[in-house]
Write a protein that binds this DNA or RNA. Structure first.
Lengths: 259, 259
DNA sequence: CGCTGTTTTGACTTCCCTCAAGCATGGTGG
DNA sequence: CCACCATGCTTGAGGGAAGTCAAAACAGCG
């Protein structure tokens, strides 16, 4: 659903009804449905459009010649993959589906047109891009500096907060269709070790993870274990000076209630 | 020198004399000189301009509360730090000088103006940005998947090729004002271990590293050890269809000679 | 009910970290 | 001119976190 994208962008600045419907319109022109393990686009191919995740989880990954795989990003509903990649002649990585996945394919021209028409949307899309970069930086910190337990905990925290920010968390629970093998390839640790870290967290009554659902039993403890500081996600409405003035009945306070 | 930036952008598309001089002009409006360990900008501060490295090396890094440091990027002459960061309210990382450092401070408005005036420059700057992202992705792969020896070798290869691409490599030698402690923080391994990996490479007659200079004695062997594939640097002129037609005497072939 | 993919456990190995000390180098000032 | 100090590099020894191998238990699903 495009609603997730709107929801996400409004963590930066409030959009006008007009801008919202523009997004809805161009994101429904062309959609694709994929199954787990399908690739959205593969390393070496020429990128020609931007992919917006509507439903399901995807990931960016890179394969080494000997088969090792590093997952570089998880894409959740509302995330856009490779906003400007079409400048490059060939993808240097792949995008794959982790679950059943519905995506919208948006042409660069359409995106360009949106940006030209609305300063607010241009800035919001740029913000979105910057946040994606910030997330990758945090992942790099995770891999370079944090121990096994810290890494696992940090990733769980991040995914939860991001899902929350697009309205997909339910209290202390969120959908989690990621296998331990995939977690391992994202965290740079072995499957066996990932499993043991998760066992430890369960034993300490920190989380429940089963049936493609993650629940936090003790958010504060996990946060502390991870050293998780969500400021890199820039969810505190940095662009509020650009906010569209709401012409409808609901004043800004209504938004607080649903956030 | 701005020449390094021009040189770099021309790995994407050839610029016109006019575009070159525009870059020279706006990059000389305001410059700053820093000493090693000085910070260009610090975590938490509000970014207000783009920093272009003219001379010397810098790095992007993030500190954890307990003092651990992850270096997220090395900035070489011609590199721009945080092209669009001014959209965000606060920096989520710092930029520091590794050597004596001369940088140009470019206002976002000026950059915007350049982009508006020249499609070619807009695309070139975007390409530059995409390459920076690609480099960070490769670092993440490095940290997540590669062993100690591979990591060290890979980083050395990358820095050499990047310096080469801006004209700062001299045969098999290049400047290397990075300490082993800094290398370690970039590679996510301890200083002691970094030192041992370098010793091993010296013992195998792969490199000479002393006096702030790096020399490759056996490029192919290092490349193979690292599993280094430079395609992520996108140095193969992806934007050649945008090339400015040269009005001067020297035809494109002259460029080959200097490359 | 049997298949495939995922999670879990145990035993053993190794890579890398930590601690700790000893060198080199180069700049400063007495 | 040489003693001094700071910073960076090098080496040794021992411990621990995480990897590998291998097999069993446990889903889902047609």
């Amino acid at each position: 659903m495009v609603a997730h994208l709107v929801r996400k962008l409004e963590n930066f600045t409030l959009l006008s009804d007009d801008e919202r419907s523009t997004l809805f319109e161009i994101a429904s022109r062309r959609t694709r449905l994929l199954q787990p393990r399908d690739d959205v686009i593969r390393q070496g191919e020429q990128p020609y459009c931007v992919n917006l995740v509507l439903e399901g989880f995807a990931c960016r990954y890179k394969l080494l010649p000997d088969g090792r795989r590093q997952i570089l990003a998880f894409f959740l509903p509302g995330d856009m993959c490779d906003l400007y990649a079409s400048v490059l002649a060939a993808m240097d990585h792949s995008i794959g589906a982790l679950s059943t996945l519905r995506i919208a394919q948006i042409l660069p021209e359409d995106l360009q047109e949106i940006s030209n028409r609305s300063v607010r949307l241009r800035q919001a899309l740029r913000w979105n891009n910057l946040v994606d970069e910030a997330i990758l930086r945090e992942w790099t910190v995770n891999l370079g500096q944090r121990s096994g337990p810290e890494r696992v905990a940090h990733l769980l925290c991040e995914i939860f907060v991001r899902l929350q920010s697009v309205g997909l968390a339910n209290g202390r629970k969120c959908p989690f269709p990621i296998t331990q093998a995939e977690l391992s390839d994202a965290l740079g640790i072995s499957i066996v070790h990932t499993n043991r870290m998760l066992q430890d967290m369960r034993a300490d009554d920190l989380i429940v993870l089963k049936g493609r659902t993650l629940e936090f039993l003790n958010w504060e403890a996990v946060k502390q274990l991870a050293g998780f500081d969500p400021s890199y996600l820039h969810l505190d409405r940095d662009g509020r000076q650009l906010d569209a003035v709401s012409e409808t009945v609901a004043p800004p306070s209504a938004r607080q209630g649903t956030a």
